[in-house]
Write a protein that binds this DNA or RNA. Sequence first.
RNA 1: GCGGGCAUAGUGUAGUCUGGUUAUCACAUAGGCUUGCCAAGCCUAUAACCCGGGUUCAAAUCCCGGUGCCCGCACCA
Length: 503
Amino acid sequence: MKYDELFALLRRRGFLWPTAEIYGGAQGLYDYGPLGALLKRRVEAAWNAWFPGLSRDYHVIDPAEILPEAVVRASGHLENFTDPEITCENCHAAFRADTILEKVRPEGVDGLTPAQIGEVVTARGLRCPNCGSTALSVPRAFNMMFGFEFGVTGRERAYLRPETAQSSYLAFPRMWDVGRRALPLGIAVVGKAYRNEIAPRQVLFRMRAFTQAELQIFFDPARFELPFDAVRDERLPLLRVPRREAGEESPEWLPAGELVASGGLPEFYVYHLVHSYRFFRDVLRYPAERIRLLEKSDRERAFYNRIQFDVEVFLESLSGYKELGAVHYRGDYDLSRHGDGSGKDLSVTLPGGAKLLPHVLELTFGVDRNVWALADVHLGRDGDRTVFRLPPYLAPVAAGVFPLMEKEHRDFALSLADDLAAAGVEARYDEAGAIGRRYARMDEAGAPFCVTVDGRTLAPGPEAGTVTLRDRDSKAQERVPAPELAARLRASLEPPHPRRTGG
RNA sequence: GCGGGCAUAGUGUAGUCUGGUUAUCACAUAGGCUUGCCAAGCCUAUAACCCGGGUUCAAAUCCCGGUGCCCGCACCA
């Protein structure tokens, strides 16, 4: 489906809409409506069942969204997000000030005000690296973080976290102490992060407040034992750096074992890359031929990332592959920075007495982006029908419940809907319009099942108390005793779970 | 941030160039009749010119500013 059509449909059905719509909206902010909120919650639940489910030693925490200034200074966000930006008035290209000044001030621009930098640029007659013009703008301080006064004195500053990962790094020492004091230790966070994006765009793809699901695995790079045989033969759609540099856009399929044997990647990395891929393919059910694992080059990835593959899915609405998740091997960068910043020793003592600053493997996932991607991939036209073919455990509503005839069958249908809800099956009662119209509404909302109460339900005989159960995708119907419905439906509403490792 | 395009009921739209009756149509929504297992039909109702200023006897229409959206560039430690 095209972008405009998809967004209109999601808005019309109340999945999501712009924040503060009556004031004209606010760039980069969106609200989820009833169906969208449920869908998002199910995506989070599926993620929680899968990634923290990889090991008994992986745990979900719920940390604060506000970080004191010392944290973002240590993490590097303060420094790296406040570099002044200079734009060329001639060709409109934008550069970081230290790029323009690198010849005359190799030590960087820290400590200079934007005005002072501007004076250097003018005095030295510096030129635009792109077009050679001297028409360079006054530097503009640019910070992607939302910062504000914290506390009553107004002297302390704090920031909305620009990524959830930092919360996990801060939690590591406490998690070590309250846990088994063993590696690997996984800390998962599902929550909001905030970035003052320059150009928010494409609805859920670049928002200023967005939800991330991230698992940080702290481990000993010399000893991370995993059942690699369980993934060795899995074939992955890979687009590695040499292939990309040769101009290829499409992935090539290679077994995971080969990435280790001749691909130069460690087992622990490939193992988690496979499980990330399986989550996208088997849990969110993106077609395998639309997924690719894109390796980031030295130039593209952040300097502290030693290995990085993005999980990308081809989206028709956005005309291209979009990053929906990633696997980052960050080394010991994060704990090292926070060790320095806090003055605490964050290394741990291993069995045998050796000290180690754990390394971090980060499995990251954009929740909002995947909500959009699920709609892109699974919501489509089938003749006259518009059907949202979500896996049942992701569907916002599990079942529509209808009386075939409004007057006669209403009471039975209403109480059946209540029974299903009480049993944990999200059910929606609907009596408006013809029966076909109600099926259509539920197809569009993604409900995998519809239940209809009819004359045979209420008449005495062998079919008394049975209702028709209609399948969204096949439109097939069967008669099921009403009391058995909840158990029957619930079986398909559990998200898949991986095999666990760990102690 | 820069450049280009766009903004009319819940959704999609006609009308804007060339200012002038009660702002068009379809779908959706609500109520009624009818029907009774896949968006049927008939009747009725609800519902819109993004915001602010200007020009004019008169502005959805022309001008200025703002906001938002799309595309490209840039940005995305």
